[in-house]
Design a protein around this nucleic acid. Structure first.
Lengths: 226, 226
DNA sequence: GTCTATACGGCGATAGAC
DNA sequence: GTCTATCGCCGTATAGAC
């Protein structure tokens, strides 16, 4: 599936794309690297090659531009991931899908997006990582943009682990979420720490390890009485 | 062990603590909530009840103040965690400690700090979460302040899993790190998502689940051929 | 040494003229 | 749809009071 309908995926010919889109692209890139407060409208405008005031004209306040950046790709991500979850549930036998299948359905679309090499999408995912870890807006924005999908995912886990303590499942999701978003953030820390033996740029490896790790972890806390 | 020698742990009598300390406390709190760029020196000075210029007098540039905040508690955390790792290795039988023991030694001191209820320490941990997820400085600063401890921890894991693929261990650490720092961040997201069934304020639950989760996860990716 | 008052150049977001 | 103007706050430097 094409992950970027209606979205300029940072084409070479920058001048042909609408200025409004160029502003969103620039904002996405800068916000993803330095967060909301670390970026100025002038920097965004400069990177987009437009006048400062054009951003305000199109989007209003700085915060509204930030929201517009988040919103632009949210629907697409949610569609792709919901489809993956549908397929996972449909293809399962009468006992339902395995934990691995559910987690793979949740993660793999993101891995595909990240591995596509589209820098716009990579910036978007890094921005989500920033949002998720923000004490200021993490709760509000993640709830606003991704709650239905997350709740479906957690529900599938509950069905696959009918005897599990509910609280354990929420904590398991929380850990998965933290690990996932640190992977999005691409700080370079794992490269440094491992002396190059593990690389953040090796997206396939990141997800290939993440799926069995999280499945085993969730099984672990749901099996053990705490 | 006392986790806060020489450090004012946000006492009631705010006026008695040295102004330099009050500046650090205020900076710690504000940086932890809004990040480096989201805070101004004037806000910090105002919260500390001092003149703006005093921060510059004591610390120089804004970035130097930020570093001073990080440095202040880093040595203490590292000491406590190194001791926990020492004890874990000493107490182990000739086969060495289990994965669970190693992870518990790595995590439990942080759980104790967080559960102590000291708001200064809680702000500090939230700030570390911010740093860890920062594409701008995450790699540089985490390496600078915590690398020796992290390398010891990873080494202990390698010894406990002699047949494991090295890359898998680094990825396992990476996931643990992401989960841990999202827990520090206390965004309130897990409360919201679970409808109150799991609470970020329940630190004991967070760590009680985290230890078996991570142990099972690391076992999982080290056992399976990928 | 510790601290305050003040000032400066620069850039922030935004509104209003064009 | 575009640009200029404005006002306030930014980080920082400094002169001097205690």
């Amino acid at each position: 599936m094409n992950i970027s309908p209606n979205i300029s995926t940072t084409p070479k010919d920058g001048t042909k794309t609408p200025r409004k889109t160029r502003i969103l692209d620039a904002a996405e890139e800068l916000f993803s690297k330095r967060g909301f407060h670390g970026v100025t409208l002038r920097q965004i405008a400069s990177m987009a090659g437009v006048d400062v005031a054009l951003a305000s004209y199109h989007f209003g306040r700085k915060r509204a531009l930030f929201d517009a950046v988040l919103l632009r790709r949210a629907e697409i991500v949610n569609t792709v991931r919901n489809e993956a979850l549908d397929k996972c549930l449909d293809n399962a036998g009468k006992n339902g899908p395995s934990i691995e299948d559910i987690i793979a359905a949740y993660l793999r679309p993101l891995g595909d997006i990240q591995a596509s090499g589209d820098s716009g999408w990579q910036n978007y995912l890094a921005l989500i990582a920033w949002v998720n870890n923000s004490p200021e807006w993490g709760d509000e924005l993640m709830t606003q943009y991704f709650n239905p999908l997350v709740l479906r995912f957690i529900d599938a886990l509950k069905q696959a682990l009918p005897d599990a303590d509910e609280q354990a499942i929420y904590w398991g999701y929380h850990y998965l979420s933290g690990a996932l978003t640190l992977t999005f953030a691409e700080t370079g820390r794992i490269d440094q720490l491992s002396g190059g033996k593990a690389k953040a740029s090796n997206i396939k490896a990141a997800y290939a390890h993440m799926i069995p790790f999280m499945a085993a972890g969730i099984r672990g806390i749901c099996a053990s009485k705490l």
